[in-house]
Design a binder for these strands. Structure first.
Length: 583
DNA sequence: GCCGTTTTCGGCCCGACTGTTTTCAGTCG
């Protein structure tokens, strides 16, 4: 078996199937064929067992949407690292067409038209053509489409190639566990932007305290998940792991651990302010410790073993990593005025989740049991309304069935409570996707925008404000609609949205989904500062994704949010009362 | 290409929206 075949995990195989789907569409084959490949890719991503194992046990056909053709392709990829179908398609479709698909608003048909007439195969050529107004000379493309293409390209270029929080966290955690097992590792921690819960991550920083750095460096660069080594030194090494993430490891003596952790956690701006503060006290702060100027020899530091003692030596209380952005946290720490930020442990329940009745993966019973196992007191299931065609939104019959199912679960899981809510679509005209008599059946109603993202700012603001003024709406979900690294937020006046939220008592969601992390932290700070009520949710579509509550809490902390400003740190009775008071 | 207590063939999930159109194709979720 070729070595590369071993590295084909479920995700990599799903990626190939997705690309086959794209190629089939570009080639103009039966769209349902493409749909099937895409559906198969999705069910593979949802699998909890490795495909290689299922293949070995001849159980591939148990996977939804995997039949003889897709099954054969999977077996081929596992055995040889490639699929004949994939190779043939790639040979049949002009190179570069796949690239054009990356531009938002450009699908197979548009890509085809552009290629057929202009032979364009790269984003750069596409941008040139759009700027020269050559696109609008093509059939079915006019000035407006050309503008949209240019805007999509601009957004594409803006992408920094940063990783989403959950991906970076998974890669970092597995490396930390791997290194922790090494002899001589006294302490180890994730530092950098990941420790600060920044919404996207450039690279991963890990700090280790050990007396002898060399064997740890050796173990690090030999980790099985490593693709290539960028730099390798006595105390610092950098590698790229299999998913393309860069990991920097820094090993320091145990006595310097606190100073090193502080230094490598950043942010840079926070560190600069701290070092300035130190200088005014005739002190020098670096990654080894805090020293009197001119006495920066090892062993003469004033403070360095823990972050707390370094901060204390500078006249500050310990500052939570999420606040270290030089956004006023240093002044607050000097005055002892830092807020007590919300912690995951403060959260009593999740109020935005989906099940396999719409676009989620797992049944309600599984979601509820996992939520209870997490220590929550309650869970709201908020499947979609029918307006979103793809997500198979709930009809009135199914809502009744859901309410009955929840009642039954509540009998089994007491005192844990499942409540039935909805994530109702706010249509383009501002109407909600259920009539009032249906909305009245739900315990919580989250309203959200899933369409017509290009509306003018005034229209979008009126649309969202209108939904918040509806007496049966409890919360506004993912208020900016952004998808990190993928889609810009829509134009909306968030100041006005926050005002309306305060005025009507509507909760503003902090969506913990790593693609969203919406509301963004700067707005969380404004919202909480103005007395808005927040709700932190996972927006889980599978049981594991309930863990995304952690990311939502991290984002809330970046927005300086306390437990008191967040409704689901309270018990269910208080939550329902808050909802009722809002009507 | 997959799938079936209606079907082994003929459907497939589908609605909203946009921009192009003059009744609809393309894209998105």
């Amino acid at each position: 078996m070729p070595r590369e075949a071993l590295t084909f995990d479920n995700d990599a195989i799903a990626k190939v199937l997705d690309e086959i789907a794209d190629l089939l569409e570009l080639k103009g084959e039966n769209v349902f064929r493409a749909v099937t490949y895409r559906a198969a890719a999705r069910s593979i991503r949802d699998l909890r067992e490795p495909l290689a194992k299922l293949a070995q046990e001849k159980r591939l056909k148990e996977i939804p949407k995997v039949g003889s053709s897709v099954g054969e392709a999977i077996e081929q990829i596992i055995a040889t690292g490639r699929s004949t179908r994939h190779e043939e398609l790639k040979a049949a479709v002009p190179p570069g067409l796949l690239t054009l698909l990356r531009v938002g608003g450009v699908g197979p048909a548009t890509a085809r038209t552009i290629y057929d007439h202009l032979r364009i195969t790269t984003i750069e050529e596409l941008e040139e053509a759009a700027k020269d107004h050559r696109l609008q000379q093509l059939p079915k493309i006019q000035a407006k489409t050309e503008e949209n293409i240019l805007r999509s390209i601009a957004a594409l270029k803006q992408r920094t190639g940063r990783s989403l929080l959950h991906e970076a966290k998974a890669a970092a955690t597995s490396m930390v566990e791997y290194l922790r097992a090494e002899d001589g590792v006294e302490r180890i921690a994730i530092a950098g932007s990941l420790r600060r819960y920044k919404e996207t991550i450039g690279d991963i920083d890990i700090v280790v305290a050990a007396d002898d750095a060399l064997p740890i460096m050796e173990t690090f660069v030999r980790a099985p998940s490593i693709e290539r080594v960028l730099a390798r030194g006595d105390t610092k090494s950098s590698v790229v792991e299999s998913r393309g993430l860069q990991i920097d490891l820094r090993v320091v003596p145990p006595a310097s651990y606190g100073a090193a952790l502080l230094y490598f956690t950043g942010s840079k701006e926070h560190n600069v302010r701290l070092r300035g503060l130190a200088l005014r006290r005739k002190l020098l702060l670096n990654e080894y410790g805090l020293y009197r100027v001119g006495a920066e020899e090892r062993g003469q530091e004033i403070a360095s073993a823990t972050e707390e003692e370094v901060y204390a030596a500078l006249g500050l209380t310990w500052i939570p990593p999420e606040l270290r952005e030089d956004h006023g946290e240093i002044d607050a720490a000097q005055g002892g005025a830092l807020p007590k930020l919300v912690e995951l442990a403060d959260v009593r329940g999740d109020l935005h989740t989906h099940t396999n009745w719409t676009d989620g993966r797992d049944p309600l019973a599984d979601m509820a049991k996992r939520a209870r196992a997490k220590g929550y007191a309650y869970l709201a299931v908020t499947d979609h309304s029918p307006g979103l065609g793809m997500t198979n939104g709930l009809s009135l019959d199914r809502i009744q069935a859901r309410i009955a199912e929840a009642a039954k679960l509540n009998g089994e899981l007491a005192p844990f409570r499942v409540i039935v809510g909805t994530e109702v679509d706010i249509r383009a005209n501002g109407n909600l996707d259920y009539p009032d008599e249906v909305l009245a059946k739900f315990d919580v109603v989250s309203a959200s925008v899933h369409s017509s993202f290009a509306q003018p700012r005034e229209a979008m603001t009126a649309r969202i404000n209108g939904a918040m003024r509806h007496p049966l709406v409890t919360a506004i979900s993912h208020p900016t609609g952004r998808l990190l690294e993928k889609r810009e937020p829509y134009a909306v006046d968030l100041d006005a949205v926050i005002d309306t939220a305060v005025e009507t008592g509507t909760w503003i969601e902090v969506n913990g989904g790593p693609e969203r992390l919406d509301l963004p932290d700067t707005w969380i700070r404004k919202a909480a500062g103005r007395g808005a009520t927040l709700v932190v949710n996972s927006d889980a579509h599978a049981i594991e994704e309930l863990e995304w509550m952690d990311l939502g809490c991290g984002t809330a902390r970046r927005g300086w949010a306390t437990a008191a400003s967040i409704v689901n740190t309270r018990g269910l009775e208080a939550v329902l009362a808050a909802r009722k008071a809002r009507r």
